[in-house]
Design a protein around this nucleic acid. Structure first.
Lengths: 349, 349
DNA sequence: TGTTAGCACTCACTTGTATTGAGTGCTAAT
DNA sequence: ATTAGCACTCAATACAAGTGAGTGCTAACA
């Protein structure tokens, strides 16, 4: 029994129909809707074969068939034709891009919202991990008599700040000088593995201001640690409620709960480091509560080895071709914006 | 027909029971569970009166009664006894507080999560509005050859930053000097109504660096505008799914949609400026989709007239006394943390 | 030998009907 | 004024019969 052209066509029809209706699809439906030039009886025979081969499943005797994880997998791997973005979809994408946003966080948020709107699924994104990032600039700024804000700028336009309080507040000018020295010493250092020699040297050079240096080191370590598990953000989670597979409120809730403790998901997203487009279908996610879900992720590049992940979470019967092309286009756009950040002020609106 | 003690007791019993069960409560139930020393028949008569007075409603003939908005209102206004925080609740509160957080955003997030966890309702909070805030310190910091980060520190430990690109990048030292001059000029100015004289003076003093000044002015205006409608955050929205009144998935979805476009909600939260504890019951929210919800809000004080709002969104039958006391305690805690921010480093964990 | 028509069978879903039970209102007795 | 008792209401539940979409199998056909 071989997987010939006709079987593929029937499988495709089943998947297409099931994506649209979320209802098990029967042989007669296929015969009527997709004119493959064969009768329902023949289709029945073929479907019987496809089921035996594991590509489709019969939820209960005498119901139509639905694609199995394996079926989706085959579809994704072999039959995914690049879905072309429709014109109006393109327009929406443009409108966000042209706004010339320069806060990455905000950009990501907007992108996620856009994705969830365009696909009616749930968008996921993780904050860019700072691993392998190099420090760029460090600044101390006094806020009042006791508080100082430490600002760390790293490659890829990544900025973190923290307010700390000090026992001894240096003069304004001294603080500036300290910033200069620290920056000179740490510039170019990897955030996760700062040279111990540089640290020692700093403590010596800034004799008398050890408090500041140690507060800084704390902060840097804090960043390095926290960035290992970039926070995950969602947009359009309520779209989940529109999926018929979650019309059972219990199921929807358990999925929401799973999304909240994002550990598992986090490692899933991290798994995509580098590869172009990752697709997890049903049980491939490795998360029990997500066996009816698929996740498609891709990475975007901040330059300097810093990458973030965006993805889409939907039911296994989601429209893979649309999802893939939306993601592809979005990742490209994010990179464009990031790389041209503030470089095209002239054509702002 | 007067609202005597006994009627109040019966109403209280109805509300208490309905909060717990979300089921219409009948006379026999009350007679059995709450030993008021009267028979179910008497209670029936009283309930009939209460219904006529508008405090309870009969969803359909021959069902139990449920409290009306008016009933809740009476309950809240007249019978709300201060709910004492249980010991274990107190412990949870302490654990967050002691972590000595100094990022306000993070603190708010944690607080909201805590509130939603303790109450099993949905927590709402708005970012503090910057209205009436005075500028404290302004700093320009170069990031690379073309980009500058503008940092604005305002009263109440509020920090905003923005990355802008400039055509001409001043020397590092000049940038520092500019920061100094700008800070000196703008310190103490209200963020929404900066003295035009000061602005003019600044342009004169910083002759040749007008670009920076105008970028700064843009940013300040941006902040002033955006802060008028502080963004609203939620925590535990999925708790909504556990409310039986939203077991109809359509209803849940329409509520979620309403929450997403937060305009209406935003003005609701803003309405609480200054007052201690605001309670909106059912239709009092003025939002059609929320007629089965109540919102309790309170404000917290950053000092210097800067206030934010936290609140709880739950079904109208929510446990008002618990909610009020949790909110009260939390608002107090936030203020404590904010006011002692970084002032108690010695007992950190 | 592959395809099709026909038929019996399965099973979720719908519809209609009867039953149950929690709850009310009213009336008469205490 | 309170209570017991009774008839009545109505949502919810349970059950039975009917419907229809779909399958598998077999025999006939090209």
């Amino acid at each position: 029994m071989s997987l010939d052209e006709r079987k593929l066509k029937i499988l495709q029809a089943i998947i297409t129909d099931y994506i649209a209706t979320a209802e098990p699809v029967g042989s007669r439906t296929i015969a009527k809707k997709y004119n493959l030039g064969i009768s329902s009886a023949t289709i029945r025979n073929e479907m019987s074969d496809l089921e035996e081969m594991g590509f489709i499943i019969q939820p209960h005797a005498s119901s139509g068939r639905i694609p199995s994880d394996l079926g989706y997998r085959l579809y994704v791997d072999r039959m995914l034709k690049q879905h072309k973005l429709k014109d109006d979809e393109k327009k929406i994408v443009g409108s966000v891009i042209n706004r010339n946003i320069n806060q990455i966080q905000y950009l990501m948020d907007e992108t996620a919202r856009l994705i969830s709107k365009m696909t009616n699924y749930t968008a996921i994104f993780s904050e860019p991990a700072l691993k392998n990032t190099t420090l760029n600039k460090i600044n101390f700024m006094s806020l009042n008599e006791t508080d100082i804000m430490i600002i760390i700028a790293a490659d890829g336009n990544i900025i973190r700040n923290k307010i700390v309080s000090v026992n001894y507040m240096p003069e304004e000018d001294i603080l500036y000088e300290i910033s200069r020295v620290v920056t000179a010493e740490f510039h170019g250092q990897g955030i996760e593995n700062i040279d111990q020699i540089a640290i020692d040297k700093l403590y010596r050079e800034l004799n008398g201001y050890g408090e500041l240096v140690s507060l800084l080191m704390d902060f840097i370590q804090e960043i390095a640690e926290s960035s290992n598990m970039g926070k995950i953000h969602f947009s359009g989670t309520n779209n989940i409620l529109t999926f018929p597979e979650f019309s059972d409120i219990e199921k929807a809730q358990s999925l929401f709960k799973t999304l909240e403790k994002t550990d598992a998901l986090s490692s899933l997203l991290a798994g995509n480091a580098g590869s172009d487009m990752q697709i997890y279908i049903g049980n491939e996610t490795g998360i029990e509560e997500m066996k009816d879900c698929s996740i498609v992720t891709t990475t975007y590049d901040f330059g300097n080895n810093i990458t973030g992940t965006i993805g889409i979470l939907g039911p296994t019967r989601m429209d893979y071709s649309q999802v893939v092309s939306v993601l592809k286009s979005m990742a490209g756009n994010i990179e464009d914006v990031i790389n041209n950040i503030n470089k095209d002020d002239e054509n702002s609106c």
